[in-house]
Simulated scan of single mutants.
Amino acid sequence: MKPFHWESTHGNFGDDLNLWLWDFLLPGLRDVHEETLLVGVGTVLNTLILPLEGRKLVIGSGFGYGSLPDMRDANEWDIRCVRGPLTAEKVGLPQDMGIVDPAVMVTEMPEFKNLPKSKRRTFVPHWESAAAGIWPEICKTVGLSYLDPRGEAKAVIREIATSELIVAESMHGAILADAFRVPWVAVSTSRAINSFKWNDWARSLEVTYAPKLIPVSTRAEAIAKGARFWGVGFERDGQAVDEQEKRRQGETMVLADPEQTRLRVMAKQALAVPSALGLWQASKAKPQLSADATLANRKQRLWDVLEGVRRDYL
Rank of each mutant, 00 (worst) to 15 (best):
S129I: 06
Q260K: 03
V58G: 06
E111M: 11
S170H: 11
Y313P: 13
F24V: 07
R247I: 02
K90E: 02
C139W: 00
L205V: 00
S190H: 01
V187M: 04
G11Q: 01
E76N: 03
K119I: 05
T162A: 06
D237Y: 13
Q300M: 14
S290N: 04
V44A: 13
G14N: 07
W22S: 04
E111P: 04
L115G: 15
D200N: 08
V106M: 09
A131S: 04
T189Q: 14
V187E: 01
H126L: 14
A177G: 12
I175L: 12
L115I: 14
K212I: 14
G66W: 11
P110W: 03
V100S: 01
W20S: 08
A222Y: 07
W280N: 09
D31W: 07
H172S: 14
E108K: 15
M171L: 15
Q300L: 15
I49F: 15
T9E: 14
S217H: 05
V82G: 12
P51G: 08
Y65D: 09
H10D: 01
D23H: 14
L289M: 06
L277N: 04
D200E: 04
E7D: 15
E111N: 07
G308F: 01
E243P: 00
V207F: 13
L45F: 13
S217D: 07
V216E: 15
V273H: 04
G226D: 00
L165T: 01
K154S: 09
Y209G: 05
T9L: 11
F234S: 10
S290K: 01
R191I: 00
V39G: 10
T208G: 03
R72Q: 03
P94K: 01
G133V: 08
L255E: 03
R80C: 07
R262T: 07
E137W: 01
L213W: 10
K212V: 08
M253V: 06
E169V: 08
L314T: 11
A132K: 03
P287T: 11
T122D: 05
G84D: 03
D31C: 04
E128W: 05
F229C: 11
S170P: 08
Q300V: 11
M1F: 11
D242A: 05
N46M: 02
M1W: 09
L21N: 01
T107K: 02
T208D: 12
R191V: 00
A224N: 10
G64T: 10
K284A: 13
M266A: 15
R247C: 00
V124F: 05
L176H: 06
K225V: 00
F4G: 05
